[in-house]
Each structure stands twice: as C-alpha cells, then as structure tokens.
Design a protein around this nucleic acid. Structure first.
Length: 593
DNA sequence: GCCGTTTTCGGCCCGACTGTTTTCAGTCG
C-alpha cells in the first residue's frame, strides 16, 4: 500500500500531472511495440518519458514558451502531444491507441517474463486478452507451441501468474529487516567479500519494502553467488549469473544480490539504494559538472578532469560538492537543494531516547505487568517510562474507568517511592477521543495524570464531526499532552482515516501539543512525509513503541527510522530529554494548560 | 519518432541473465 502523496502544494499538483504524462508516454510506447511499430519509434516514446523524468525546468513554462521541442530527446511530434496533455489534459491519439487493443492486454505486463514482444505473440497467435486466458493457455500447454516460447517459458509464466499475489505484496520494513540483517552479516563474513550492504528501500528505511537488495564488493564473485543461492531460507532461485542472482525466500520475499569490483562499489551502492527520484537529481547535478553518473561510475563528458578514486558514498557526495546524504533522506524531496552548502544533518538515533510514553500493561490489553515493563525499560538503560493504558471507551481493550485509573496512578506513585524501583515511572493514559471530539474520562481525573495521550480508536459516526475536527477538539483540551497515531492506519491492512494533516499540525502548533510517531511497525504514524511541515511549525514529536509487551520496546527503532526520514533532530523529539528536563516539560505543560 | 550532420537520411542502446537458440532475442532493473 502506498500512502497518498503530499497534497495541497501547487508544486505537487504539477508533479502529478507530469507523472501522469510520463505514464501515458510509456504506455504509448508499449502499445506501439505490441502493435509491431518500428522499434525505434516505440523507443522514442520511452526515451521521451525518461527525459521528462529528469527534466529540471518547469514543464508548464516550457510548454507556455514553446521550447519543449528544444529539449534533447523530445522532438516536434512528441512535444505537441505533451503540450496538448498539459493544456487540455487529454490526447485523442492516446485514447484511440488505447481503444485499439483489447482492454486488459496491458495487464499481462505484470507477469514476470511477459514483455511487449511476448504479449504480441500470445495476442496475435492465440488471441489471448487477459491474465486468466493466459493462465488457461499455459495449463493446456499451448504457449510452448509458439515461436520463441519453450517449455520453461511456459512454466515460468504459469508460476508467475500463480505466485502473483505473493510476489507483488509488499512487506513491512520490520519483517524485511529481520530477514535481511542476519543475511548481510553472514555475507560480510565470507572471506571473498570486501564490503557488503543492504541497498534499496530497506536501506532508506521506507515503511514497507517490495524486495531485498544486497550488494557486495569482491574480486571473486563466484563463491559468493554460490553461497547466496544455497541459503536454507532460499525457496527458489529465479536467476543466477556470474555477478547477479535473484532468489525467493520463505515467506515470498524476493532478494537480489549483485557483486561488483571494489572500485565500482560506491557507485553501485548509491545507485541501488535509490530512490529513483534522488538518483535522477544527483545524475543531473553531476552532468552540470561535466560528468555522467551511473551505477558503473563517473564518466567525464564535458571536462578533461578525471575524478580520482571514489571508494565511498561520502567521497562521491564530496566530489559533487554535497555533504553526505543519509539514505533515509534520499527520497527525491529536494534533499540536494536543502543540503547545498550545509553539513550532514544530525538526525536522531535510537540511542538518543531516554524513555518512552505510550505503553500498556495487563491493566488494559498489555501482556506484561507494570513491574515487568519497568524492569525491561530499565534494562535498556532508559531513565523513565510512561504507562498509558487504554480508557474505558476501548471496551475491547479492557480500558480503564476513572476509579481504575486513580488506582493505577497510586500504584505508580508507590512504585516510584519504593526501595526496589529501577526506573522512574510517569502516570499517563491513552484516552479515547469520543465521536463528538470530547475525551472519554473527566478532566478532573485526567488532571491527576502526569500526561495524557489522546487517541481515536473508532471512526466517528456519520452525524459527528469529521476526523480532523475531532482531533483538533481534543488538542484544544489543555490537559492533552500528545496525540497518538493520528491517521489510525495499519500498513498493508487498513487505509488511514481521511485527515487534513495541515490543520492537525497547525492545531498542534497552536496548542503546544506533541504529535506521536507511533513506532509499531504496522502503524508508523504520523507519516514521515508530514514531519517537514510539522518541523517548520515547531511541532515536536514523541517516539513511542505502543508496547503491549516488554519485547515491543524494540519497536522504537522503526519509529526512529521514520523520524530520520522526517529529518528530525534529537532536540525535536521530547523523549530525548533526560528525566529532569522531561519532568519539567510535563509539569509546565500541565500548569500552562 | 529523435538526432545530427560529412544536413533531409541513416543510425539509434545499457549490461546481465535466461531460454531457445546454434548466434541471439526478449526481459529486467
């Protein structure tokens, strides 16, 4: 599941249009290829799409000033088509072309092994229009009768269709990370391996990942490929060559390994870490300096100066007069411009945390007792732990009523006063926001807590205010310290509530309310894409594991990843404060409110 | 369909891998 992109900025709207046009050009190229057009003509559309992707100048401006056909890779004919799409939003040529082939034929591209040529072959010879028909033809053994198809191709396509769900599913960062870490560690221990790293979206700490990318540098790749493809967790080897292999692991996760010589390693690592958008931006910066940059290295284009050995990513950024850009920030969201002439930002790390606030015990739906939680938190080295069980409206989670909360607060006071205390406990509550925006427990009782986390757990009824208004109403209660998982999303499971993030962040800023980064690997909410705006507004974060068991404290790592992707620095996260400072912060928050 | 000329035609790209070939076409990232 991909989250909706940032909306509301004029720039982003234009980007969407540009991306749509890129998609249309690519589609035209594929359809022309299926129809058997001149291969170089079909290429021209694909090339034009690539050109548009890397376009630095504003597309709108180029169209208005009629300079589009001056861009290398875009000629008169394609420029006219793009202009039409920009100004009128539609293109009869494309609409007609699309209508000229059966609906569903392009879906065949989703099947591994099926490209334009093979689609054309099955369409012309077997009149296949859809994935279902393709599957049927494979099962009847009809595919292997075609020129250029054999038994293996047919088997591969059939398997591809059958495994489609598993192959295409994305995976939580946490799950992928747990599989990838031991693999890369073992990879590094091989005698032939000089360096090895995880690349791709996993390295960028994206909330979900599609597959695993491993990269190693070595002068003798053969034993490394052998090792990789014979791991016990490998279910199937889908490709194996001298320097490149693909496997499918148990659980359906796809993993690729590439082995490159040491002098190419830095370039390959950067390239395969991505993102695509970041790479486009860096390549274009490199070109401006007279070098073409690729996974293979730097090539002098317009200059005589040969770059010296570049053996690390840092050296590569150095050469391009940029600070080292941490992988988490390489999302093509203007990171190059924002870091121009600056140092690498000092992003928060997991060891900066001095405690966490959103945690449950057996009193509501947690699996560990208050003392077990306190002990485990002390073992990590934290200075404090906040206890925040559910409130009574979360009936399914055995939420606390007023009396039970008062009892728990007393239990926490007793613990803090006891001789065998191992850590300071803060008394909190994860208080439900009701459908009218009010809180589930009385202000009188909430005022007894050290802090209050307000959270939505059930969507509001049709009559009540929308989700945005409910959250804002809750934030306007001066007793509320922070809001939990604002969108309620469950990655790969449940879509986020429809929220106006801007209004939420503005309200948090106006009321001095902290926004949580819920670190549960399935939540990671508020999303990293919004922290840029929140930082600008001076809103602070609290990174919380939402622990229901002592084991769940480890989730803070996933939350820290999201904070890093949001460019957050330690001082912007309240639970990097030491006990004295955070106690003062909570006290002040209560008295100001 | 684009580009760049030795300027109105002729060439066009990116390397690795697989499978169907018997020297290479198609797919993929």
């Amino acid at each position: 599941m991909e989250l909706p992109l940032v909306v509301g900025l004029r720039e982003d709207e234009r980007m969407a249009t540009k991306n749509e046009i890129i998609g249309i050009l690519e589609e035209i190229g594929v359809i022309l290829e299926i129809k058997g057009e001149n291969p170089f003509k079909t290429r021209a559309y694909i090339n034009a799409a690539r050109t548009l992707e890397g376009l630095e100048e504003d597309l709108q401006t180029l169209v208005e000033e009629e300079r589009l056909d001056k861009v290398k890779g875009i000629g008169k004919a394609i420029a006219e088509k793009i202009s039409r799409l920009v100004t009128e939003g539609e293109l009869p040529y494309y609409t007609d072309l699309k209508a000229s082939i059966p609906h569903g034929l392009l879906n065949l591209l989703d099947i591994p092994g099926m490209g334009p040529k093979k689609i054309k072959a099955v369409y012309k010879n077997l009149n296949i229009h859809s994935i279902e028909e393709l599957k049927l033809a494979c099962e009847k053994g009809k595919l292997q009768t075609l020129d250029g198809f054999g038994k293996k191709t047919e088997e591969k396509i059939l398997k591809g269709i059958e495994n489609r769900e598993a192959y295409m599913a994305r995976h939580l960062w946490w799950d992928a990370h747990e599989i990838a870490e031991p693999l890369v560690t073992a990879l590094r221990e091989l005698p032939e391996v000089e360096k090895a790293e995880i690349a791709g979206s996993l390295r960028r700490k994206k909330e979900t990942v599609g597959d695993l990318d491993f990269l190693a540098s070595s002068l003798s790749p053969a034993p490394i490929m052998e090792w990789f493809t014979s791991r016990p967790e490998v279910q199937e080897v889908t490709a194996k060559g001298e320097t490149k292999a693909s496997v499918r692991l148990t659980g359906g996760l796809q993993a690729d390994l590439r082995v490159v010589p040491p002098e190419q390693y830095a370039f390959a690592l950067h390239h395969f870490t991505g993102s695509k958008e970041h790479n486009v931006a860096l390549r274009s910066r490199s070109l401006q300096r007279g070098y073409s940059l690729s996974e293979w290295g730097l090539k002098a284009e317009k200059t005589e100066e040969i770059p010296k050995d570049i053996l690390t990513e840092k050296a590569l950024f150095d050469f391009l007069k940029l600070p080292f850009i941490p992988p988490e920030l390489r999302e093509g969201r203007e990171e190059l411009e924002r870091l121009e002439g600056k140092k690498t930002p000092e992003l928060i790390s997991n060891t900066d945390l001095k405690g966490v606030f959103h945690n449950h015990t057996k009193a509501s739906d947690g699996k560990s007792s208050l003392k077990e939680m306190a002990h485990a938190a002390a073992q990590i080295g934290w200075e404090y732990l906040g206890i925040s069980d559910h409130s009574k409206a979360s009936f399914q989670a055995n939420g606390l009523n007023e009396k039970e909360l008062i009892n728990q607060i007393q239990e926490i006071k007793d613990y803090n006063a006891s001789a065998d205390r191992e850590i300071h406990l803060f008394a909190g509550i994860e208080c439900d926001i009701l459908s009218d925006g009010s809180l589930d427990l009385s202000d009188e009782v909430l005022a007894e807590c050290d802090y209050v986390i307000a959270a939505v757990h059930a969507r509001s009824g049709q009559k009540g205010p929308d989700e945005t208004s409910r959250l804002i109403a809750a934030m306007e209660n001066p007793l509320v310290t922070m809001i939990a998982h604002p969108t309620g999303r469950l990655l790969l499971q449940r879509e986020p509530y429809e929220l106006d993030h801007r209004k939420i962040i503005d309200a948090a800023a106006a009321n001095g309310v902290v926004i949580e980064i819920n670190s549960h690997p399935r939540r990671l909410d508020m999303d990293w894409r919004w922290w840029r705006y929140a930082r600008e507004k001076g809103v602070r974060a609290s990174i919380n594991p939402d622990a229901h068991h002592t084991d769940h404290f480890a989730y803070t790592l996933a939350g820290v990843n999201i904070a890093r992707k949001g460019w957050l620095q330690p001082e912007e996260v309240i639970n990097t404060m030491n006990l004295k400072a955070v106690r003062e912060f909570l006290r002040k928050r209560k008295s100001d409110g």
